[in-house]
């Protein structure tokens, strides 16, 4: 049978299905991100004839890490079994009920990744999401979310820490990635500042200053990579030793004994997404971003 055997009337009716509305940008983006997250968590070679991708084999070096990965994978599968809920969560905005699910899946993705470059890509991707969320809120005339700002801060710090673990071209590429992200952050903060024509609140000014400092740090890192690594390592060590004053948060209470971070590089990756790496924005688990608000 060929095309000619279908009656013109029937052909016309079938063609009514050709009118497919344009795919929603947010939903399709969320779908792609979700898929890429699944790609990153692929555990090839389990009962298969395929060789696993080389660099992933390091995951299995530490048995605790393997167990943690298994738990996280089970959790991911459990969340995935919620089907539409998890997918819907990927499009959630900071004030939505499902936003916690979105950030939880991000934490799980990071916890399942062991390669520094891949981890850095994840943090850059998450930071871009936060920026998009902030932009959406600005566009809608809404107050910018504390959560998104706190998470943006966390992702940025993590980006720098991951970059400091890289060498050579990998480090250069990472710094360029971070630089682009910081420039975007700078732009968004400037937009936030324009919402306060009578003068930006001190917290916002401080955030902008911090972005500029980081841009300078990254710019210098491209010229002197080792100095960049030492600076980040120094700050990380300071923080691990309870001297987390890098952000001028001098009134932050000292970490109670026994609750110090064991490994600053990987801390909080299985948390709820609101933990802080540097104590700048979050105290006692509560985002302290009131400085960004106060639209007066």
């Amino acid at each position: 049978m060929n095309d000619h055997e279908i009656s013109p009337e029937l052909k016309k009716q079938l063609e009514s299905l050709q009118n497919v509305p344009e795919r929603g940008l947010q939903a399709s983006h969320a779908g792609r991100e979700n898929y890429l997250a699944q790609v990153r968590t692929l555990k090839p070679g389990q009962g298969t004839s395929h060789k696993p991708a080389g660099k992933r084999s390091t995951v299995q070096r530490r048995s605790w890490a393997a167990r943690l990965g298994t738990i996280a994978a089970v959790l991911l599968v459990a969340l995935s079994s919620l089907g539409g809920t998890v997918y819907a969560a990927q499009a959630a905005q900071p004030d939505d009920l499902l936003y916690g699910v979105k950030t939880l899946t991000e934490d799980i993705q990071v916890s399942l990744e062991s390669d520094p470059e891949e981890k850095l890509d994840l943090y850059v991707s998450f930071a871009s999401r936060r920026l998009q969320e902030i932009q959406n809120q600005l566009a809608a005339g809404e107050e910018v979310s504390d959560k998104a700002l706190a998470l943006l801060e966390k992702h940025t710090q993590k980006m720098l820490e991951q970059a400091a673990r890289l060498e050579g071209q990998g480090l250069d590429k990472a710094l360029l990635q971070i630089e682009a992200n910081l420039q975007k952050q700078n732009q968004i903060m400037a937009e936030l500042g324009r919402e306060h024509p009578q003068g930006s609140p001190p917290g916002l000014l401080k955030a902008q200053e911090k972005i500029r400092e980081r841009l300078e740090l990254v710019g210098n890192g491209l010229k002197e990579p080792q100095k960049f690594k030492d600076t980040i390592k120094g700050k990380s060590d300071d923080h691990q030793n309870g001297n987390g004053q890098e952000n001028g948060n001098s009134h932050k209470p000292a970490t109670p004994p026994g609750q110090e971070k064991k490994d600053n590089r990987d801390s909080n990756e299985n948390g709820n997404g609101y933990g802080s790496e540097d104590g700048e924005l979050i105290m006692n688990g509560t985002p302290d971003t009131s400085r960004y608000k106060g639209k007066d």
Binding site: P21, R23, G24, A27, G31, G83
Partner: peptide, 12 residues
């Protein structure tokens, strides 16, 4: 649209 998105996600 949402069902179609879910089907694509499930496919991949």
């Amino acid at each position: 649209a949402q069902v179609a998105e879910d089907l694509v996600a499930e496919t991949f």
